[in-house]
Design a protein around this nucleic acid. Structure first.
Lengths: 113, 113
DNA sequence: TTCGTAGTACGAAGATTGTCAAACCATGCT
DNA sequence: AGCATGGTTTGACAATCTTCGTACTACGAA
């Protein structure tokens, strides 16, 4: 883990910019139990987790799908670290777009903010 | 509007109780442009509107569908007044279940709370 | 270079969703 | 009674979503 962390071209996942994040897309992304759990886990202090460490009740490919939905909605940011794909919540950006939204969702999920 | 407002049996729409309202269902219900607009319109002081007065860009039956989704999610309460079905936001109950959620969504929609 | 690990890509199957038109029902008015 | 209005029900269709297994790629370690 001491080197560059080089990434092969075409492996940088696409993220929407803050200004492009749409409310409906965010709500839609959060309206799924698996994704809601991913978001809750991330907020519970497990920032920058690899996909594998979530222990989701779905297959690998389904897992990839859900992370992509969250990423394309603008809810998480992902980057590679070795073969692992790390995820973190885009908390500040999301709060700038939709103040209080993520906090309300997390609070409803029992995550203390 | 001076009389009893009698309702034929079987026409009282079913609503979930406060305790039965689920976050995922609420998020899912709000993740649609037509329904988001209905909720915004209701919040913009048009409480207790008949379905007809929303001027939605969909057919009658689709309109019925969206109002049902909102009602079954616990977001609106509906009752009959003559042949009209009136709707109102379940603001307090929703805020008791998921504090700040509706406010955040409405704020993101440009509705001042 | 060979192998294992972490994840992605690609169908495909099945369920859900948003939409409509047509037929229907309930209420109020004439 | 008859009619107009507001809404519901039904059935259909297309699109999207969730899920999976299989095959594949990228990286790190031996």
């Amino acid at each position: 883990m001491s080197h560059t962390g080089r990434i092969s071209p075409g492996r940088q996942p696409e993220h929407p910019e803050s200004g492009q994040i749409r409310l409906e897309t965010v709500l839609s992304a959060l309206a799924d139990p698996v994704r809601l759990r991913i978001v809750s886990d991330l907020a519970r202090g497990h920032q920058d987790m690899a996909c594998i460490s979530f222990e989701l009740p779905v297959s690998k490919s389904t897992s990839t799908h859900h992370f992509r939905v969250l990423r394309e909605a603008g809810i998480i940011r992902q980057y590679y670290e070795g073969t692992s794909r790390m995820s973190r919540l885009r908390t500040e950006e999301l709060d700038a777009c939709f103040p209080g939204l993520l906090a309300a969702v997390l609070h409803a999920q029992g995550v203390r903010v």
